[in-house]
Amino acid sequence: MAQEWHQHQMRVQYKDTDQMGVVHHGNYITWFEVARTEWMRHFDMSYHAIEEEGLLLPVLDVNAVYKSSARFDDLVVLFTRIEQYSPIRLVFEYEARRITEEDWKANGLNHATADEPYGELLTTGKTTHMWVNKEWKPVKLRKTHPELYEKIQRIAD
């Protein structure tokens, strides 16, 4: 079975738009971070708890491809899943999609995951991360935190 997408719904705030009335392109990167944080929380891997264990997960690379513009008050769902993982790296993929009020109500708080993204595609993206310790030295998650690595394997496979 293919990995499910975690979904996080939101409404576009006025502060996220530019003079043209559309979401500023840089805000999608922030939305990816929100989506990733909520993905981790859903799978019981909060950033806070991971950092308390001495692990950091900095972004090495970020990519966004813009397909259509979101506007103030649009309903948007951020889809997130793992694209690749290894004991050292983790790659997330994202889709930001505009949805209708009906989608919002039908797929809201009672549904944390979806088999496939739905709605109008706005932006796709990826972030690449590396597991490091507090001294910013790379760590092999399989050796230092095998339970966390096994959890990622179960989710991603």
Results as ranks from 00 to 15, higher is better:
Gln19Pro: 10
Tyr47His: 11
Arg89Met: 00
Gln13Pro: 12
Ser46Cys: 15
Lys67Val: 12
Lys126Ala: 04
Val76Glu: 09
Leu78Phe: 05
Lys126Thr: 07
Val91Asn: 00
Arg97Ile: 01
Ala64Thr: 14
Trp136Ala: 13
Tyr85Met: 13
Val22His: 06
Glu53Cys: 01
Ile82His: 02
Tyr149Asp: 14
Gln19Ala: 14
Thr124His: 00
Tyr47Glu: 04
Gln13Lys: 14
Thr144Ala: 03
Val65Phe: 08
Glu120Ser: 12
Ser69His: 08
Ala35Met: 02
Thr100Val: 07
Leu90Asn: 06
Thr113Asp: 11
Met130Asn: 05
Val65Cys: 12
Pro138Ile: 13
Leu57Trp: 11
His25Met: 09
Ala114Arg: 04
Arg41Trp: 08
Leu60Ala: 05
Glu52Lys: 15
Ala106Arg: 11
Ala156Asn: 02
Ala114Phe: 02
Tyr94His: 10
Met10His: 12
Glu93Ala: 04
Gln13Cys: 13
Ile29Arg: 04
His8Phe: 14
Met20Leu: 10
Tyr66Gln: 05
Asp44Phe: 03
Glu116Pro: 00
Lys143Arg: 09
Glu33Cys: 10
His25Pro: 07
Phe92Cys: 02
Lys134His: 14
Leu148Thr: 13
Glu120Pro: 07
Leu122Ile: 11
Leu57Arg: 13
Glu102Thr: 10
Asp16Asn: 15
Thr128Pro: 00
Leu90Ala: 08
Gly21Gln: 01
Gly26Asn: 13
Lys134Arg: 14
Pro87Phe: 05
Val132Tyr: 07
Arg97Glu: 00
Leu90Ile: 05
Gly108Cys: 13
Lys137Asp: 12
Val22Tyr: 10
Lys15Ala: 10
Glu38Gly: 15
Leu122Cys: 08
